[in-house]
Design a protein around this nucleic acid. Structure first.
Length: 818
DNA sequence: AGCACGCCGACT
DNA sequence: GTCGGCGTGCTC
């Protein structure tokens, strides 16, 4: 019988729209399967690992399909549910499947011809077990520092290249480049053990005597060893641990090894710690927590998504732990999403204590080997609980039962560059729908979007508004800085109240956190007397002052007018400029409190790999008295000795030129306030503001989220913003300024003519030229349920046309922008 | 994304 | 006369 002619539609991991069709050679008919990777030649000489998206027997019209070269995988690396998730992301966030694939797969799984291959220095090669081809490649790698996949394809047949590299990777004889760039993490752990000789008591007596006389440091180390093994009841100790216990004296260790007291044995350890899932200890829930837990379960019987609005220090984590445990009993997988990598490392120890060591962290900063290892273990269902940042969404879960998106309001859930510009929280909602899983969104300050969905009955809502234990709510003091200015009691950026409180706190040997959002640098004009700030008449966002043109400009719609000569509210003629950062605050603090140990925490001081953790450790160990920081310090950190939190300039939060300014101000101030006071100690929060009766401040002070939500919702409805309307932000980029203006104007025109969306712009963003490309932004507002999809569809068509018409321009789409 | 093809300036 | 600059068009 004639064999079947099969065609495979594949995704190429490049930002290309659409799929590409390859013909399957008869010899591979039995091997192809959706979700497996195949090596394909794409273009003149490039080889990529593409992913089989579908299989069929329809020859493509209009061209002759190339043959695919080989099937890389023995079993699919991506399952059907993942493919459906990719489709959804590519359609909702208006990007290509290739871009989603590129973001989703760890790079070990996406070779291409330039991928560099190196020998793995840590692994000894068993030459007997190599095939002829493998031998050839290993030999070539010994002569060269590295080979590209293209180089390898010149040594052995092109068809065999990818499968062979994959086989060598699996045996860990080779590594691919990305890993080497990262600092290589040790695969091996060394243990210190006693030698056989030490069992000879008499010999040991002599050793002791000798050490006592001549080598006290070695004796100290030996004693440390004994006391440790007595405590742990193990017979050996990790080398690093022993060194730490005995004053990091590695020469003493060396000497003891030479005296044949110690031996050092080295073991390989999985990079990824996947111990057994233990039952672990049981978390005892408070009555309030238990009640929330029960409410969540009953809400899940009707709704797939539940929002848990639990105030800071209400103890949400304990509830999560119990829900996770219950999911595991049903033998289903759990995904616990957090917006920041730093938070995942904070919480993992806690989870492991209760749920055993089989919990794994996954995020983009892991090295490639670790990522691939986790990928495979999730695929084989050897990992049941993953805690991770955005990218953890893309792991090959077979059967998710429960998803948590913690701190769901955080804007870092949204990726903005490169595409896919997805929001991990919203994508998680879709992912759980695909799996028939339940998803819990947790926050002390829910996003407008989520609370709107909950209030409208689309999501379940559970509220946990009592603090855990006896922690009293902090006392909030709002300081009117314009009054202090009038009275001349302000010292630079500090009110007399704040200075006095800081002094008092330091005296009590307690710690202070000062919060200043430096990002709000965009200068804002403000009346020096009544604090009136000019707002845009169309958008309700504060206008940004442009010095060169002396104009006030709205960065949303482009509306601009001359900068006012006097205050529209009180007629005062002096308008002052707002905007100062953490650095300035740190500098001035040092003058006011010369004895205090002060540190600053923002993106500038936490750029290094461990600098973030170091700062936190230092502060936690009370090596610092005052920590000045941006919103970074607002995020879920718990310090036990902080009794004072100061918000240096709340105005800059309210005046940020963005329609979410109020929402963010509410969230940030509430979250930083949550850092003040612990256990039985009542903390204090001082908010410096020139408008002490600002409505948002009143809501914060009353700790009344619902009232805030209601008033903010009215504003959002009035100006057609989310959660009632959806936004799509379009960025046009061009090298040529005039062409950019023309294209952006034409595009805006076309969108206005063909869609029902409200169109703002085109407008230059704050930074209007990046890497020699000029930028212009257009914002669409579309009525939520009815028209967003239609608008996107038309937008895709228009975009296709414009890409043809202006081939050198870049058009980017960002649905639900942050 | 990458690479080839193609059309204009400074060089053997 | 050629080498090479990067604009633009295509990749199954």
């Amino acid at each position: 019988m004639e064999p079947l002619t099969i065609f495979a539609d594949v995704i190429i991991p490049l930002p290309l729209p659409g799929l590409y069709t390859y013909r399957v050679p008869f010899s591979l008919n039995g091997d192809v399967e959706i979700g497996k990777r195949v090596a394909v030649q794409f273009g003149k000489r490039k080889i990529y690992s593409a992913l089989i998206y579908s299989l069929h027997e329809n020859p493509p019209a209009g061209y002759e399909a190339k043959y695919l070269l080989s099937v890389i995988d023995a079993r699919p690396v991506v399952n059907q549910l993942q493919l459906r998730l990719w489709e959804w992301i590519s359609s909702y966030y208006m990007c290509t499947l290739g871009e989603v694939m590129y973001a989703a797969l760890p790079s070990v799984l996406k070779f291409q011809s330039e991928t560099r291959v190196l020998l793995n220095a840590e692994k000894e090669i068993d030459r007997e077990g190599l095939t002829d081809n493998e031998f050839l490649v290993i030999e070539a790698l010994e002569k060269n520092k590295y080979l590209t996949l293209h180089d390898i394809s010149l040594i052995i047949d092109l068809r065999n290249t990818f499968p062979l590299v994959k086989a060598l990777l699996e045996k860990a004889y080779i590594v691919i480049e990305e890993e080497v760039e990262d600092k290589y993490r040790p695969l091996k752990v060394s243990y210190v053990n006693l030698t056989e000789k030490t069992k000879d008591e008499q010999w040991m007596q002599e050793v002791f005597a000798k050490l006592e006389r001549k080598a006290p440091r070695q004796l100290e180390m030996l004693m440390a060893f004994y006391s440790h093994i007595a405590r742990t009841r193990e017979n050996r100790i990790e080398k690093g641990m022993l060194l730490r216990l005995a004053g990091n004296n590695s020469s003493a260790l060396q000497a003891l090894v030479e005296k044949e007291v110690f031996t050092i044995e080295t073991e390989e350890r999985d990079r990824v710690n996947t111990g057994e899932m233990a039952e672990g200890s049981i978390v005892q829930l408070s009555a309030a927590q238990q009640s929330s837990h029960d409410q969540i379960l009953s809400a899940f019987s009707e709704k797939n998504v539940v929002l848990l609005h639990g105030i800071t220090s209400a103890g949400k984590t304990e509830i999560y732990i119990n829900l996770i445990r219950e999911t595991l009993r049903q033998d289903k997988q759990v995904l616990y999403l957090l917006p920041e990598i730093a938070l995942t490392t904070q919480i993992i120890t806690r989870l492991r204590r209760y749920l055993g060591s089989g919990i794994v962290i996954y995020h983009s900063k892991l090295n490639e080997q670790e990522r691939a290892e986790i990928w495979n273990k999730v695929l084989e269902r050897r990992i049941q609980v993953v805690i991770g940042a955005r990218s953890a969404l893309f792991l090959p879960y077979a059967d998710l039962g429960f998803v948590i998106a913690d701190e769901e309001h955080e804007n870092s859930y949204k990726q903005f560059d490169p595409a896919p510009r997805y929001n991990a929280r919203d994508t998680a909602v879709y992912l759980s729908k695909l799996h028939g899983a339940k998803i819990l969104l947790g926050s002390a300050t829910p996003s407008m979007e989520s609370y709107f969905n909950a209030a409208g009955g689309k999501y379940g809502l559970v509220e946990l508004l009592t603090r855990y234990g006896d922690t009293p709510a902090p006392e909030l003091v709002i300081v009117d800085v314009s009054e202090e200015r009038r009275k001349k009691t302000m010292k630079s950026h500090f009110s007399s109240v704040l200075l006095k409180e800081i002094a008092g706190t330091l005296e009590k040997k307690e710690q202070v956190i000062l919060f200043q959002n430096r990002r709000g640098y965009a200068p804002v004009l403000e009346c020096s007397i009544c604090a009136w700030v000019p707002h845009c008449k169309n958008c309700d966002v504060s206008m940004t002052y442009h010095k060169t043109s002396d104009l006030l400009r709205c960065h949303y719609c482009g509306y601009s007018h001359r900068s006012p000569e006097k205050c529209a509210a009180c007629g005062n003629t002096y308008m002052k400029m707002l905007g100062f950062g953490t650095e300035k605050i740190e500098e001035e603090l040092a003058v006011f409190f010369p004895a205090a140990r002060i540190a600053r925490m923002d993106t500038d001081t936490t750029r290094g790999k461990n600098s973030y953790q170091n700062l936190i450790d230092q502060f936690e160990n009370h090596n610092l008295d005052i920590l000045v920081g941006t919103q970074m310090i607002a995020k879920g950190l718990d310090f036990t000795r902080v009794s004072l939190v100061g918000v240096v300039n709340a105005d800059s939060l309210f005046n940020y030129p963005d329609f979410r300014a109020s929402e963010r101000a509410f969230q940030l101030i509430t979250q930083v306030s949550g850092r003040a006071g612990r256990r039985d100690k009542r903390g204090k929060v001082i908010i410096q503001c020139s408008k002490p009766d600002h409505p948002v401040l009143n809501h914060i002070k009353a700790n009344d989220y619902k009232a805030f939500f209601k008033s903010e919702l009215r504003e959002r409805i009035r100006y057609n913003y989310p959660p009632v309307f959806r936004l799509i932000e379009i960025t046009v980029k061009a090298r040529d300024f005039d062409q950019l203006n023309r294209a952006a104007a034409d595009l805006t025109e076309a969108i206005r003519a063909q869609t029902t969306a409200i169109v703002l712009g085109p407008e230059f963003p704050q930074v209007s030229r990046i890497k020699n490309l000029y930028l212009k932004k257009i914002i669409l507002k579309a009525d939520k349920e009815r028209s967003v999809n239609a608008v996107k569809e038309i937008l895709r068509q228009i975009a296709g046309r414009f890409k043809k018409e202006y081939p050198s321009l870049i058009f980017q789409f960002d649905p639900d922008p942050q």
